[in-house]
Simulated scan of single mutants.
Amino acid sequence: MLFLRMLFEEFKSIIFEKDVIILLVLGPIFLTFIFGGAYLNSYVEDIPIAVLDEDNSSMSRMILQQFSEDDRFNLCYNTNSREELKNLIDSRKVHMGLYIPPDFSKDVTTLESSDVLIVVDGSNMVVGNNAYAQAASIIQTIAAGTQIKLIEAKGIVPSLSYNIAMPFQFTDRILYDPKMTYMNYLIVGFIGVFLQQVMLSGVGISVVKKGEYLAGKKTFKKLFARLIVLSTLGLASTFTSIYIAYSFFNIPIKGNMQVAFLMALIFILAISCPAIILAALVKDRLKFAQISFMLSLPTFATSGYLWTMDQLPAPLITGIKMLWPLIYFVRPFDEVIVKGLSFEVVKGNIMEMLIYTLIWMPIAIFILKKRYKQEECAN
């Protein structure tokens, strides 16, 4: 009964903290709409390109027509020199250039080696990779078709000429996100980071505001009661955001939401540990806000979401796992929702978050009590 009364008091207290309510309830929902809108287009399309056709043959014009009709490209400029082509790329008026050399058609028909040069601005990885991949696909398709025609011209029947030109093929099957869209790849991970940031800020602000009260008697019960209220609000807004991603942005939801809910709940307990420690150390709301938002990018970048964990240096992974829990949560959380991973697959991540919490929560409570007891003694 005493704990329920404490829980009710914490609920009444937090309800009147407008900044915390706005942050926890509206923050993830607002950010989901913002980031979802940013990635509303599934692909990078209408990439501006320039061409330099020094061959001006029916074959070169056919190649340019293929690029002109492709939705991925917008053929904006026909240039007259290599220098002009380079200047258009350097000035960011186009992201890719296509160069067809003189005598290209003649060299092809006489079976001489000849190249079509694709010049891609690699400073923008997203645009550059998309432009290069689609351009290479178009050129390879045209090259294969041309080779078949040349073989047929030598009197070989079409079925045999195809087998000579294409001695083997491959088939593919892309699982979970066949279209490989940026939206499906990023949005659930972003929602996981939103949960981190709102809980980090919500718990931290509560510690800064109520530090002396929380550091008094029954610290653990007071903290636990406050975390229950804060986590209820954070979880409600997070799963509302997932519903928005599903309903408005067509994100595939294949997983067990109960497993995802369990992971999010335990992550909230884990992320509360550094939130309590940082807030108790700085004891200033503005400084805490600056630190917490500064941490959002490096913690996400090293979480194994954008860059796979097996490509990170081992010492860095060890250090991150010791200090910050997002690495246990955000990628498995995404894969539970999008891929439908079972509890058995992610239970190791859940256990790691529990171990992290069991180690760091006593340390967080110790620092909280020590910092505010020092302030009490000074007064």
Rank of each mutant, 00 (worst) to 15 (best):
N80Q: 06
Y39E: 01
F73Y: 06
I253L: 11
K283T: 03
G348N: 13
G192W: 02
I365E: 02
I350T: 06
L214A: 00
A314M: 14
D19R: 14
L306Q: 00
D103E: 11
E152F: 10
D107R: 13
M294E: 05
R61F: 12
I268G: 03
D284N: 15
I337Q: 03
L326R: 05
Q66V: 13
K221P: 04
L326C: 04
Y77Q: 04
P315D: 05
E344S: 13
P313T: 06
L227H: 13
E376N: 05
L175S: 07
V25A: 09
I139G: 06
A136D: 13
I118Q: 10
I367Q: 08
E10Y: 00
E335N: 14
S13D: 11
V188M: 10
I191K: 02
W324R: 09
E17T: 08
K339N: 12
R82W: 08
S296W: 01
L4F: 14
I15P: 00
K12S: 11
T232A: 15
V336Y: 02
A144T: 14
L286D: 13
F16D: 12
F293M: 11
V229H: 03
L31C: 09
Q169E: 10
S161F: 03
A301M: 15
I268S: 04
Q65H: 11
E375H: 01
Y185A: 10
L40V: 14
R371V: 06
L2P: 09
A133K: 11
C377F: 13
L52A: 02
A38T: 07
I22L: 15
R371Q: 15
L306N: 12
N250H: 11
K149L: 15
S247W: 06
Y77M: 00
V229A: 04
L111D: 09
T146E: 15
S91I: 04
L52V: 02
F104H: 01
T181S: 05
D46Y: 11
E69P: 00
Q374F: 02
W324E: 14
V345N: 03
Y246V: 02
L150N: 12
I15E: 08
I251M: 10
T238F: 05
L4T: 10
V282P: 02
K373M: 07
A260P: 06
G204M: 09
L26I: 08
R61T: 08
R285P: 01
I156W: 09
F67G: 02
Q169P: 04
L117M: 14
R173M: 10
N256M: 01
G128E: 06
D284W: 00
V20R: 04
S272Q: 04
M257N: 05
F249M: 00
Y246M: 14
L323F: 12
L186F: 09
V338Y: 01
A301F: 14
Y43G: 00
A260M: 05
P362D: 09
L368H: 08
Y182H: 03
E83N: 10
P298S: 07
S113T: 12
R226Q: 12
I337D: 01
V120T: 15
I89S: 07
F261V: 00
Q311W: 09
Y176K: 03
D19V: 08
S159G: 02
K217T: 12
A143I: 10
V127S: 04
F261N: 00
G211E: 02
S231C: 10
L23C: 13
F16C: 11
P313C: 12
E352T: 08
A264Y: 01
Y77P: 06
